[in-house]
């Protein structure tokens, strides 16, 4: 059976033969070939409940992404997520969730966003779906993507002055005003059942109460 949309592009001969086998490539083989090929570029490897995460450097992202797509058949970028480690270094991290439709294998790539530029290279030319994912990361976290064809906000409006998913942005919001476009106000949190505090206290004390977030 031939699925042109899931076949790896420019496959190396080794992988091509593996795909043409009746037997599918196993997870160990695929991730093993990733580790062998990237070698030094892998900073760390984490296994958690059968899912593998590799930490890489932001400068190696495009090279590794292309390799993953073309040689390892990770043809599906499921999602791009970003993490705000507020108060720690590195503050921002980006996670790429990859999937191989040909082999049914997941791979997660994680990298720290360089502090000075607060930007990483785009992968929207490698996986077109990254276009909107990167716009969302820019809109919510303020992380920029070098080479992105159209880096505008995607959920909030152009000109909104904040990045709402950052940890130093309060849940109740901040006032802003753009005449004829949009405005925002601070949301009253009284009676709001959704403000919780992380703690080791009893569940009675942890029960959601109306309280402003403490920053």
């Amino acid at each position: 059976m031939h699925f042109p949309w899931v076949s790896p592009r420019n496959s190396s001969s080794q992988l091509r033969s593996a795909q043409n086998d009746v037997r599918l490539m196993t997870r160990q083989e695929l991730l093993g070939s990733f580790e062998r090929s990237c070698g030094e570029k892998i900073h760390s490897k984490t296994e958690f409940r059968g899912e593998t995460t590799f930490t890489i450097a932001a400068s190696d992202l495009r090279e590794i992404a292309k390799f993953c797509r073309d040689e390892l058949s990770f043809d599906y970028l499921i999602d791009i997520t970003s993490i705000d480690n507020f108060g720690e270094e590195p503050r921002f991290e980006i996670v790429y969730h990859l999937y191989s439709l040909a082999y049914g294998i997941h791979l997660r790539l994680k990298l720290a966003v360089p502090k000075e530029a607060n930007a990483v290279d785009t992968v929207s030319d490698i996986w077109p779906t990254a276009n909107w994912h990167e716009r969302e990361a820019y809109d919510m976290m303020g992380i920029k993507f070098n080479g992105h064809p159209d880096l505008r906000r995607i959920l909030m409006w152009e000109g909104y002055p904040y990045f709402p998913l950052r940890k130093d942005f309060p849940l109740e919001g901040l006032p802003s005003e753009m005449p004829d476009v949009a405005f925002t106000n601070v949301t009253p949190m009284e009676g709001g059942p959704f403000v919780t505090l992380p703690s080791t206290a009893t569940s009675k004390d942890r029960e959601p109460r109306a309280r402003p977030p403490q920053l």
Binding site: P164, F169, P170, L171, G173, N185, P188, M189, V195
Partner: peptide, 16 residues
């Protein structure tokens, strides 16, 4: 009233 969305993104009642 804004309902369950006590959020930066939601107007807290159209009567505003």
């Amino acid at each position: 009233t804004g309902g369950m969305y006590r959020s930066y993104a939601v107007l807290q009642g159209i009567d505003q």
